[in-house]
Design a protein around this nucleic acid. Structure first.
Lengths: 189, 189
DNA sequence: ACCTGAACACCGTTCAAGT
DNA sequence: ACCTGAACACCGTTCAAGT
């Protein structure tokens, strides 16, 4: 990549982080280009779709959680490890408003820039779940893809202004569906 | 209301039902007015906001479920009654794409055209839940507003193309969080 | 190679002018 | 009272013209 192109790419990502933080996943792309002092076509050249832009915004964070989760497998009890993974995933799906649908789609869409990262995160989650299955603390009917779906649904709940105050409680309710013996995740009630 | 105004109002609702079915909650209002052969200002006169239009579309169906739920209280076991109410609510939240956020907001927003209907539906749900609490089949930490939130989250899951095939299973998972002794709701797995 | 911005086809919302 | 549609300020997306 040419030096000027690289500079534009970086600036677009930096500005997009702000704009998507403010406006959510349906932020104005024109606004991103404008604030980055870049032509509209330059934005489209680097990020052919809105999804490509937001996926680029999220990718590093997904990989970070995957790495952290690999540690959890050896350092925590099956139950604690799974709960920490779940909380991290919810936080990821809630990093910007309205991105949980994108995460949900990326897991299956091989064309997504987030696909490989999501599969890796899914796989480590499934491993943590299997460990919990083996020790009998996790409900057997729940599988790794269910986890991803429930996490996305929870992030959606956090996105709803009227539900945000109850969201931590609802996390506990759903966590209990996955880990029936579990009582409380440590979130304030 | 003048006769011609009534005719326009009715036609707008009929057309909106089609357009919102096709395009979801963020359907083009211009398209609605166009297909109804009505000026754009006429649409705005009858429905000052997009929410007002969609709420008008949903209201009758909400009231219908509330009425049905009142019957359930006397004709079914606490568990079956609650499950039927839950399924009906999910169906309502899933009647058009993207309306679950609107339902969620309407419960608290006293200005919403759907507010009273949602409160009534919430209240009958809370009564069914209390009955289930009394017989010990429902988890005590779940309250009536949690039900509404979980139902909306489930409808959101049904809206995601990649999750739709698992949505019935996820309904069971969440139903089990509410009714721990419950095994299977009757949805195909 | 890469960047630019005008051009096109849409959209929501308002409001002066009509009946 | 009610209806109409032009007007305004946006938007996503494409692409010819520039360097």
């Amino acid at each position: 990549m040419r030096a000027d192109a690289q500079k534009n790419y970086d600036r677009l990502l930096t500005v997009a982080r702000d704009v998507v933080s403010e406006q959510g996943a349906d932020a104005s792309l024109r606004d991103v280009a404008r604030r980055a002092d870049v032509g509209l076509g330059t934005l489209y050249r680097h990020f052919p779709t809105r999804e490509a832009l937001i996926e680029a915004l999220l990718r590093a964070d997904v990989d970070e959680l995957t790495a952290k989760a690999a540690d959890l497998e050896v350092s925590s009890t099956p139950e604690d490890a799974l709960l920490t993974w779940l909380r991290g995933c919810v936080a990821l799906n809630h990093e910007y408003r309205g991105v949980s649908a994108l995460f949900t789609a990326a897991l299956e869409d091989t064309g997504s820039a987030l696909h490989d990262s999501c599969v890796a995160l899914h796989d480590i989650g499934a491993r943590l779940l299997d460990r919990a299955h083996a020790t009998g603390v996790a409900r057997p009917t729940v599988d790794g893809t269910d986890l991803f779906a429930l996490v996305a649904a929870l992030a959606w709940l956090y996105d709803q202004p009227s539900l945000a105050p109850r969201a931590d409680h609802l996390f506990d309710v759903i966590a209990t569906a996955i880990l029936p013996t579990h009582q409380h995740t440590g979130f304030p009630e």
